[in-house]
Amino acid sequence: MSEEQIKNLEEQFEARIARDEKIEPKDWMPEKYRQTHIRQISQHAHSEVVGMLPEGNWITRAPSLRRKVALLAKIQDEAGHGLYLYSACETLGVSRDELYDQLHSGKAKYSSIFNYPTITWADMGAIGWLVDGAAIINQVPLCNTSFGPYARAMVRVCKEESFHQRQGYEIMIKLANGTPEQKDMAQDALNRWWWPSLMMLGPTDAESIHTEQSMKWKLKRKSNDDLRQQFIDQTVPQAHLIGLTIPDPDLKWNEEKGSYDFGPIDWDEFWQVVKGHGPCNKERMKARVEAWEEGEWVRDAAMAYAEKQKERKEKQAV
């Protein structure tokens, strides 16, 4: 293809996106569009799968059968999200095994929030309320993103995440209205998860390297700072409602702006965790790599069995 032809295709492509048309896997797309989508969708899929670990940590210790069942169902949803996000990614011409490889080798990232430990039951509430809450704010705009399979996956993901967020908040309500010990547990969890949740919405706009291109492709529709402000404005009243205190002495309602002012975020901590030195980065990766390696003989068996079944069928047909 000549350079001019490619340029022509690119112009048509950008025009389609501008018209809000969906790009489907078999459509022509610029290589950069493909790569950016593989990166973002796989990162999202990895986050769902790694995210199963901190919550899975409490399945065997959930305080009641009702909570245990709800937690299991929630984590199962996350696994399901992982599954169809990997599938969406595969439509771009990359296999799940390759994506796992990227995760296990440290080449691909996942949401840094899952590198924090879940040390009390209240963390199950805080994760649902804050982490899933922040995820929804990040993801709702993606229901209208330009790449069809991703947009459709996000519609379903967002519905389920919103259920998880309510479930997490409900755990917090129960604790906040419980005994002093339970209330302390809830406050402690909020103290530990608040700042990492704010960081989850990404570096400040000035530091964000992917924003401009992603905005053009509707992979991003609001800047990180706008999303963060939206999250804070939405979450602070929810904390007040149940008598919990946001761990930010600078947090103050700004009448003029119609939103909250908040204190400085410790970006050094953010980059430390992103670069692999958070409290649980090593444990999370170790758990994933171990599951993958220890499962190899199982996957090999399934392949060998399927192969044998196929051969038998073919023989019968002859």
Binding site: G56, I59, I75, L83, Y86, A291
Partner: peptide
């Protein structure tokens, strides 16, 4: 949970 040999299992 989270430690299976594949996402499906």
């Amino acid at each position: 949970c989270g430690h299976g040999p594949s996402l499906e299992t």
